[in-house]
Nucleic acid binder design. Structure first.
Lengths: 195, 195
DNA sequence: CAGTTTTCATAATGATCGTTATAGTAACAA
DNA sequence: TTGTTACTATAACGATCATTATGAAAACTG
């Protein structure tokens, strides 16, 4: 069957993920990726395919290994707890690693050349999927009486996601976790109540 | 004194600004810039300097020609009016031009290669300047009794800017102005009142 | 052991990046 | 008109981009 791989694929993928997290899709070069992973270029191509495929695998890993608090949050009993848990966990994640602040899922959405359009669209789709999950959760909360009849589940979902995206930008601009949490406190200050 | 310039410098700068708006600093190539401006490369270098200088001039123009609603907003009588005016104007600007949605000032903050670090820092600084302006305005509002004693001017400024940044991301993801305004409505529903 | 297969490391591919040298042309001053 | 100046346009520069031939080394099977 031939020779075995010398490097750990999972570790290499995580290292590549961190590079993308810091520099975005187009900002990360193969020189960066080989240095961070300790793996030469042909080995990266052999293990992951081309750059776009590598990024998509890194994005998958990001959702399963770093955004794992989202499914946990969606199972919490009240809409407010769902929102608060997601927001505070995101603030922590956005500032946990000084070398790659912010959110990988957001960094590729904004700017880039036309070549990066497929990647940008993939990130937009992933963002929209998260929005749909949150909206459905808030619709359930309204049906359960956890949110008042006057509440707007979709508006709340859009609002929570706007805060998430805003925090990602602010974290990239160097905000501390404490400053992000002040944003959250303000956002949650008058969450609609069913009383 | 020699030959006169054939192209309109202001028009060329505005065309370049729109390219940066859509693709960010590194995503915009000189091929894009020459096509959009109708000006050959050496003429761009002669008129504006290198790419970084051109971007900085475009950023200046962005603030003076497109973010001109900010100084207007800061002069409104109440903090809530200030926030509402800025947010609604931003929602409009973020969705006004289908070819370049979102906010130029945000697109460069997030990801990019190490070469773009000076530009990223310039955008971060500009963002911080806006934050300071808004914080000072809210501090004044608190002193004037327009905001309650319990209000946190800096927290409110951070919050408003988070919404702005979040909307920029959402606009780039294709949100309509109506959807952005639902975010704003939710954000302003948490606004503290002096009563 | 030999034979096969896969990985590894070096280096080269064509394309595109930002930047400029060069040559030609148009508009000024004298 | 003549000389000079500053613009325009073509094309080339070295560097870097993502991608891949190439050949040597290593680990499996029989």
């Amino acid at each position: 069957m031939g020779r075995h791989r010398e490097f750990d694929v999972e570790k290499a993928l995580d290292a590549a993920l961190c590079v993308f997290w810091r520099k975005g899709y187009e900002g990360a070069s193969y020189a960066d990726l080989t240095e961070a992973t300790g793996v030469e270029r042909p080995a990266l191509y052999s293990a992951f395919g081309n750059k776009e495929a590598l990024f998509r695998k890194a994005l998958d890993r990001y959702y399963t290994h770093y955004l794992d608090y989202i499914p946990v949050a969606l199972d919490l009993p009240t809409a407010r707890e769902v929102a608060a848990h997601i927001l505070y966990q995101a603030a922590d994640l956005n500032t946990r690693y000084p070398d790659h602040t912010g959110c990988l899922g957001i960094h590729g959405v904004l700017a880039g050349s036309d070549d990066a359009e497929p990647v940008r669209q993939a990130l937009i789709d992933a963002r929209a999927a998260g929005e749909a999950q949150l909206r459905q959760r808030f619709e359930r909360a309204k049906a359960e009486g956890d949110l008042p009849e006057t509440a707007d589940p979709e508006g709340l979902a859009l609002f929570v996601l706007a805060i998430l995206h805003g925090m990602a930008v602010q974290a990239k601009a160097g905000f501390s976790r404490e400053r992000l949490e002040r944003v959250i406190d303000q956002a949650l200050s008058t969450w609609p109540t069913a009383s």
